[in-house]
């Protein structure tokens, strides 16, 4: 077993292991949606770290790979619904890019469920709650990510 696997196993065996989930939230919709979830006192798992980006189209594939390298167990890219993009078309490009990216991750041996994309608008606080809760449960079931990790 590689050092990588040993370390990850150790992490998994720790009862208090909690997944780290990174959410790239678009400033105009999903970030507002997350804000609304908070304002409405909706409970959602504290495993998510929200990183605000101007548009889901801003999310570079390298951000996603880096996240996995640096210890994230699941990544969510979330933005405005098709047709609602603040920049008119940014999310359509996101859609194409990440359909391809998810398949590439799968081809490299990653579990594609660790990488998700969703449309969450500014009024969809409950949807934000539901998506991140579901994602957290899914990632918990998958266990800690051992792949692409930077173990240095």
């Amino acid at each position: 077993m590689s050092i990588e696997a040993v370390k990850a196993d150790k992490a998994a065996s720790q009862e208090n292991w909690e997944p780290k989930i990174l959410v790239f939230a678009c400033n105009w919709c999903t970030y507002a949606g997350a804000d609304l979830a908070g304002l409405s006192r909706l409970q959602y798992p504290p495993n998510v770290r929200i990183l605000r980006v101007p548009c889901s189209g801003r999310v570079n594939p390298q951000f996603v790979i880096r996240a996995f390298q640096k210890g994230i167990d699941g990544v969510l890219v979330a933005g405005c619904h098709p047709g609602d993009c603040h920049y008119a078309t940014g999310n359509y490009f996101t859609r194409r890019r990440y359909l391809v990216m998810q398949r590439l991750l799968e081809f490299m041996g990653m579990d594609p469920a660790r990488f998700q994309a969703r449309w969450i608008s500014g009024s969809e606080g409950p949807k934000f709650q539901q998506v991140v809760t579901q994602l957290t449960q899914d990632i918990k079931a998958l266990g800690p990510n051992r792949k692409l990790r930077d173990m240095e």
Binding site: P61, I65, R66, Q69, L104, L148
Partner: peptide, 13 residues
């Protein structure tokens, strides 16, 4: 390995 994976996956994208 990690940097090499990063490089080759980035290139693929």
């Amino acid at each position: 390995l990690s940097e090499n994976q990063f490089m080759q996956m980035t290139r693929a994208m």
